[in-house]
Design a protein around this nucleic acid. Structure first.
Lengths: 322, 322
DNA sequence: TTGAAAGCGCTAACAT
DNA sequence: ATGTTAGCGCTTTCAA
């Protein structure tokens, strides 16, 4: 910048004015400065700018895994909103590890991101309190923060979706409906189990429930166990996209009524088509990002808690008779 | 930092030493400093650090679309390598728009990323030259840069994979094999067409080729046109994952031998299973990132041009008879 | 319309 | 083992 100034024969501040498009610069002077900029191939050092201004124009996004279609779609939505607001996205995958989540969040904060969007992995987010108090807004998506933290949240109607699916299977004549969910420590898994259990009422049988890491072997073993019962399940409700796919592989050749939570590509091309409870990951990301930017532009007020609707998409597998 | 120093009763530099884990600090002093840090909730301002040190410990990643499973997987691999090297990832989707690609790259450079990994959308990357000369290393992945730029590249064996697929179909008795590819301006699409054409030799018939945006309507129309020919195709080779899925939908109910370039989740669960030419997006991202970090740690020498192997995965659709 | 000077928070180089 | 000083490249404040 100093070089540009001396080449253009002006002071540092004038270059700064031109670079930032501030008013009150003589057009001829501005032109001279622009020429010097081009000639020297100058580009503003954002680090220095950030240091001085205190805002980074960067948003931090922590998700579980970018390689998971649900989160990559959410990610894209957040990115689009951020870009449209002139911000860049710093993102990281927690791999469902609380320690990695914490480290990512704190690293982002140390880099002074303007705001955070977090799909939490852990259950304790007290480490975020100082940052929140220091004025860094955060929005939690898909899952709420640990207790004692009052931040904006954007969740989907997990229990409602599970009720929808369970009722759908009941209405097609099933009485023995199994539920295959992720670890119960994961908020969405717990809520979906709750909705299922609720709706099953007296039909609930805990031998038809498996809450576990979605590993192929484990899922297969649990399904085998259930199918060997005296009164085996005639229908299966899977608690997330990954489990649905894993279960489909484990069941291959043993057709069974099935509804999965979360939609996934090709669900319509399988035979039978896979009935799902669909959420809208893109919409979820967009809404969370928009909420964050409202906070960034100064909107105060109590924490908002949004709950997005889900809908059932019948494609055949959920309509099979017992 | 000043506050921490005064609370701990030491000089600025001592705090800096403790924060950075530099040797040569009395353990007792260090402990006092750490206490002060905790008490004040201090965390280092990375912007200032970056400004002073000149390195951001950040890598910029430009891909086509995070929501595409191929690129999100690649993205995850890059992220893992970056994290293991103490770097963060600034990422953006170009949406196949050269202007957006350029803007992302230049914005990343203005933020002084230490290095760039780019899946290019455009054909002219002269805008990168000043940055490269200024010492910011870049690795191009999946597609090479425009002419005149000598940077590291990590590509897959596009033409070889297309030859493999075409030969596979020929060996199963097909003579009328259609090729459905993306726009010919996209490097990978052009290379795959080349391999296909090559292998078809005198059997090549341009009426069996469609190079286009992967829109459902367009793909359906082109396939209908081909199937209405006097000698319709008995097999189809699709040029990327998105086209494979689109074609599968368009063909629903009209079974046909099919091989797709790129593997995709559930390809094994469809009936028949979808035979593909598989590349390894995770490996591609990892290798590119490792190459970048070798450059960052000072390895010079001529630009490397890596070509990763592909393999055919037979699942049924590519083994159907004419 | 333009410029000079101060300082953002940190680290490198050089004392002590 | 600890401290002092200068300055990274920019924006802010105030003055001309």
């Amino acid at each position: 910048m100093k070089d540009v100034a001396s080449v253009a024969g002006v002071a540092l501040k004038t270059v700064s004015r031109v670079v930032n498009g501030e008013p009150g610069v003589n057009p001829a002077t501005a032109e001279r400065v622009r020429e010097a900029i081009t000639r020297l191939g100058y580009s503003r050092n954002e680090s220095a700018r950030v240091l001085r201004r205190g805002r980074t124009s960067t948003v931090g996004l922590v998700i579980e895994d970018v390689a998971d279609p649900f989160y990559s779609t959410l990610s894209r939505a957040v990115e689009d909103v951020a870009i449209s607001r002139g911000c860049l996205l710093l993102s990281g995958s927690s791999s469902e590890e609380p320690a990695r989540e914490r480290e990512l969040v704190l690293t982002f904060c140390a880099r002074r991101v303007d705001g955070l969007i977090v799909v939490p992995a852990g259950e304790d987010h007290s480490f975020l309190r100082p940052e929140l108090e220091a004025g860094t807004p955060a929005v939690f998506v898909d899952r709420p923060p640990g207790p004692g933290l009052d931040v904006d949240t954007v969740l989907c109607d997990n229990a409602g979706g599970a009720r929808l699916a369970t009722r759908h299977l009941l209405s097609h004549g099933h009485r023995r409906i199994a539920f295959l969910g992720d670890r119960p420590s994961i908020f969405t898994a717990a809520r979906r189990l709750h909705g299922y259990r609720d709706t099953m009422g007296r039909l609930f049988d805990e031998r038809l429930v498996s809450m576990r890491v979605p590993s192929p072997e484990g899922v297969r073993a649990d399904l085998d166990r259930m199918l060997a019962l005296d009164e085996p399940p005639t229908a299966l409700f899977t608690g997330n996209g990954r489990l649905t796919v894993t279960a489909l592989r484990a069941l291959a050749g043993r057709p069974m009524a099935l509804i999965g939570f979360d939609d996934f590509e090709l669900a319509d091309l399988l035979r039978p088509g896979v009935t799902v409870v669909a959420q809208d990951p893109f919409g979820m990301g967009r809404i969370a990002a928009e909420l964050l930017f409202r906070r960034l532009s100064g909107e105060s007020g109590p924490a908002e808690h949004l709950r997005l609707p889900v809908r059932i998409v019948p494609r055949g597998s959920g309509e099979l008779p017992p």
